[in-house]
Design a protein around this nucleic acid. Structure first.
Length: 467
RNA sequence: GGCCUGAUGGCGGAGUGGUGACGCAACGGACUGCAAAUCCGUGAACUCGGGUUCGAUUCCCGAUCAGGCCUCCA
């Protein structure tokens, strides 16, 4: 089976074939860095990281070029900077660093490039110039607006005919717009806001133009895959598509992105995460309570296009699953992974079928169970099973750490030494068959949030879950 | 108002026109000084009403419920 991806434009799964297999391109809309990002913001990060890893496996590590942008010009950033009385760079640098740190903790590989709006300004202004030049955009009252009438297919991606959108519009139309659906490419800055010079007066870019300019600059049209959250389909991606196609006078066969992929929302339990409900969970906070890998497991536990219900229980289940898998790997630590390392076709199949991560995770568990049995029996199957397990896990960004580090993670050196001492004392008591003392020491360890497991080769221990 | 999703066991969550993944939780057993881990086993679901069919959880229609988008929210 070859890779199939659900394309929002086609509203169907289609076989994925890159335009150029030696240069596969993917662009995913990234964060606006004005605060810590919540866990929902990291769903696309993790989902498209899996796709990135899969594409690297299929086409070669150097053949995939993945750009994820950072919006560092925005009203919310301006507000935050004004509130703290600092330049916007202070805000954006701080939260970009936090975002990248959190993404790394969630096991996401760094994108090939991470363009920033403020550093793409020349390309943005040049692109607006071209759009004005070919009558796809017009200047009015210090603004430059995209002329949606210039793009006959406007509304095709989101499935919204123009007239319906106007009929259903909830927002008052600005008087300088020629058509109610026209959107801003450039706008004047208010006093105190960051400002750039342009042929249409000092100001700053609208929201959508930065992505098109970055795609143009970093990847080139048409790109193979454009990704983002489902909420971006309209207006953001619809507008990007319109300006991107018109920028090139409908060249490239009118293609902007060959596949549009959108991930579903993450909900808190069964309600939407929102500030007004007070149920926003920041990844930064969750990462203090649980290993990033457990959070990643929970994020990939539902198919990416399905809504994902985020609950404490889901996180605990994720943690338990990883405990089990690392337990198997710990028992198989002396087994050498053998075989070609090439995944059997049927093991990769769930991922090839539009990134069916839950099914792939079931395969991981199956391989782990089989590996555990093979190790127990001393069967020669253990080596190939371990190779398959590690290969599949690696495509999904799982099981990349040492089992001991997983179980003992969260314990600093001092605590580790203390625990080792208690475990040794308990071992001595058990050898002397002093069960009362052994149980007392186990109780003492339990008080430290440590669980001991006796085995033929002596006792091992782990930090119990903290949720 | 318009457009669009979804509804699977106690929970999470795949999948399928006909022997109903997988995990967590529960229960019984093995193992263990006792546990934990592991192993063996058990019970448990396809929102409702029509239709198509030899047969539907799976296809079609309708209803109900839930959710999303409709100009800067992943």
């Amino acid at each position: 089976m070859s890779l199939q991806l659900y394309d929002t434009m086609a509203r169907a799964k289609r076989p994925f074939v890159p335009a150029d297999p030696s240069r596969v391109t993917m662009y995913v809309c990234g964060p606006t860095v004005y605060n810590y990002s919540h866990i929902g913001n990291f769903r696309p990060v993790v989902v498209f990281d899996v796709l990135f890893r899969l594409l690297r496996r299929l086409y070669g590590e150097d053949a995939v070029r993945y750009a994820a942008n950072v919006t560092d010009v925005d009203d919310k950033i301006n507000a935050k900077a004004a509130e703290e009385g600092v330049p916007i760079e202070t805000i954006t640098d701080r939260y970009l660093a936090a975002y990248n740190g959190d993404a790394a903790a969630l096991g996401a590989l760094p994108p090939t490039v991470q363009p920033r709006a403020t550093r793409t300004m020349d390309a943005i202004i040049a692109m607006i110039g071209r759009l004005v030049g070919n009558n796809s955009a017009y200047a009015a009252e210090g603004h430059v607006l995209f002329n949606t009438q210039a793009f006959g297919d406007y509304g095709k991606l989101s499935g919204r005919p123009l007239d319906e959108m106007i009929a259903g519009a909830r927002v008052e139309v600005a008087p300088y717009k020629q058509h109610p659906a026209d959107f801003v490419l450039w706008k004047p800055s208010k006093p105190g806001e960051p400002v750039w010079d342009s042929p249409w007066g000092p100001g700053r870019p609208g929201w959508h133009i930065e992505c098109s300019a970055m795609i143009e600059q970093e990847l080139g049209l048409p790109i193979d895959i454009h990704g983002g959250g489902i909420d971006l389909v309209f207006p953001h991606h619809e507008n990007e598509l319109a300006q991107g196609v018109c920028d090139h006078d409908h060249a490239h066969g009118g293609e902007y992105a060959r596949f549009w992929l959108h991930n579903g929302f993450l909900n808190m339990g069964d309600e939407k995460m929102s500030k007004s409900l007070g149920n926003v969970a920041l990844a930064h906070d969750l990462l203090k309570q649980q290993p990033g890998e457990a959070i990643r497991w929970a994020l990939l536990g539902a198919h990416y296009r399905q809504p994902l219900s985020w609950t404490d229980d889901a996180l605990i289940q994720a943690r338990n699953s990883l405990d089990h898998l690392y337990g198997v790997l710990g028992r198989a630590r002396h087994v050498e992974a053998t075989g070609s390392g090439a995944l059997a076709e049927d093991q990769l199949e769930p991922l090839l079928d539009d990134l069916n991560t839950p099914a792939a995770m079931a395969t991981i568990k199956k391989l782990a169970t089989d590996l555990d049995a093979a190790v127990r029996k001393g069967s020669g199957e253990a080596g190939p099973l371990k190779a398959d397990l590690m290969a599949l896990a690696s495509v999904m960004g799982f099981l990349q750490q040492d089992p001991q580090a997983w179980f003992q993670g969260g314990a600093d050196e001092e605590l580790t030494a203390k625990i080792d001492g208690l475990v040794a004392a308990r071992d001595a008591a058990r050898k002397a068959k002093d069960w009362a003392e052994a149980d007392r020491l186990r109780g003492e360890l339990a008080a430290l949030n440590v669980e001991v497991m006796d085995g033929p080769a002596g006792a091992t221990w782990r930090i119990k879950e903290s949720v």
